[in-house]
Amino acid sequence: MEQIRNEMKMEFLALSSNEGFARVTVGAFVAELNPTVDELADIKTAVSEAVTNCIIHGYEQKGGSIWIQCSIEGQQVEISVVDTGKGIRDVEQAREPLFTTKPELERSGMGFAFMEAFMDEVEVVSELGKGTCVTMRKIIGKG
């Protein structure tokens, strides 16, 4: 069987109304791998979490740009969500379930926990004042 190789990049404003657009677009891109309904829901939820983090935490709802780079290699999908916002002071702590810096906004602190639960691998690279890049990988069709 021939290996699928594909790539796409998108850039959009950090507006909450773009959260749906981002996850649906990534979902459509991944469709050529014939994901199951659950796999597609996993990817869409993970993308939604990462994009919401950029908007609320990275840019603190003051706007900016978000980049998503997505590639398919064989059965693996790799999605990077990037912002040039304020960055994360302590990535380890940010990844802990229920940890949130914005309880006043009723954030549940489950964003990274969901990304980890729904994807196979999650890598976070962040620098204060420079921004954050979250890279997630998932193999489609493991059964």
Binding site: A41, E49, T52, L105, E106, R107, F114
Partner: peptide
């Protein structure tokens, strides 16, 4: 048909 962690905050609140 879709809910992410933001939904949890709304429900708990």
């Amino acid at each position: 048909c879709f809910m992410d962690s933001s939904g949890i905050g709304v429900v708990i609140g």
